[in-house]
Simulated assay, not measured.
Amino acid sequence: MKLFSWLSARVPTLDATTLARVGQLPAAKPLDGCSLREQRWIVVDLETSGLNLHRDQVLSIGAVVIEDGAIDLGQCFERTLLRPGQSINPSVLIHGLGPSALAAGSDPAQALLDFMEFVGDSPLLAFHAPFDQHMLARALKDSLGYRLQHPFFDVADMAPLLCPHATLREAGLDDWIGYFKLHVEERHNASADALATAELALILFSRARQQQIHSPLNLQQRLDQWKRRRQSPSF
């Protein structure tokens, strides 16, 4: 009985309008042979209350769109999630998400639903994507009962794959920004970090085409091969 009570407590209660919107979300589109330029990409960055994958919460989502080979500044997403009673980790203040910003945020379920409507069926890009993917998937499941199945590409893996002569190892976003001498006016909030990641991704897509990687599917295959080689004992 306790088991069933626990399971029922994990299912979010949603109103009819929200349930209908969740039901209308498009399924993730499988990766195919369309060109990297033709593909619509969502570049996302999350700010969270900490780095614990199981306990911490998504506080802010920032995203931009890459389409037709360019960043489309007309398609941007920025939302702070309201967390009533959320204790403020000191690191949150670094990102400008103090108590007033959080208090003015949106209901998490509505903000996450708005974001997935913005994403549509497109694949996502993030720097250190496994963290963002896990946190986003957990937030969607907890708030909407929605299972995230969209492909996620990790720009932190794409960079060393496509720039094998770079001497950077275990590099962060700032390291690659410096390597390519990108001019980034602002950092350390979700929208600014998403934009910086998008600028880096455009350079990497150009490098990919030079290496005969022309489609998202081909890029995913090359990334999988690269990661298998890195994990082999002889690497």
Rank of each mutant, 00 (worst) to 15 (best):
M1V: 13
L3D: 09
S5F: 04
R10S: 14
V11T: 13
P12A: 10
P12W: 05
D15W: 13
A16D: 15
T18D: 05
G23P: 01
Q24V: 07
P26G: 07
A27W: 04
A27F: 08
K29A: 14
L31S: 05
L36E: 03
L36H: 03
E38Y: 01
W41P: 02
L46M: 02
L51W: 06
N52K: 11
L53T: 11
R55Y: 12
Q57S: 14
I61M: 04
G62E: 10
A63W: 07
V65E: 13
E67K: 06
E67D: 03
A70Y: 04
D72N: 15
Q75W: 02
Q75E: 12
T80Q: 11
L81I: 06
R83Q: 15
S87T: 13
N89D: 15
V92P: 00
L93M: 10
I94K: 07
H95V: 09
L97K: 06
L97Y: 08
A104D: 11
G105S: 11
S106T: 06
D107G: 08
P108Y: 09
P108D: 06
F115P: 03
M116N: 07
E117Q: 15
D121E: 15
P123F: 08
P123R: 05
P123H: 07
L124H: 03
L124V: 02
A126E: 00
A129R: 06
M135H: 00
L136T: 02
R138M: 08
A139N: 05
D142M: 09
S143L: 00
Y146W: 14
Q149I: 02
H150W: 10
F153Y: 09
F153W: 10
D154F: 05
M158L: 15
L161Q: 07
L161R: 10
L161S: 04
A166K: 04
L168C: 03
A171W: 01
L173H: 04
L173K: 05
L173V: 07
W176G: 12
G178S: 08
Y179E: 14
F180E: 10
L182P: 06
V184M: 05
E185D: 14
R187S: 11
R187Q: 05
S191L: 15
A194I: 00
A194R: 00
L195Q: 11
E199N: 06
L202R: 06
I203W: 11
I203H: 15
L204Y: 09
S206L: 04
R207S: 03
R209C: 13
I213Y: 01
I213H: 01
L217C: 01
N218I: 01
D224C: 07
Q225K: 10
Q225L: 13
W226A: 06
R228D: 14
R229N: 13
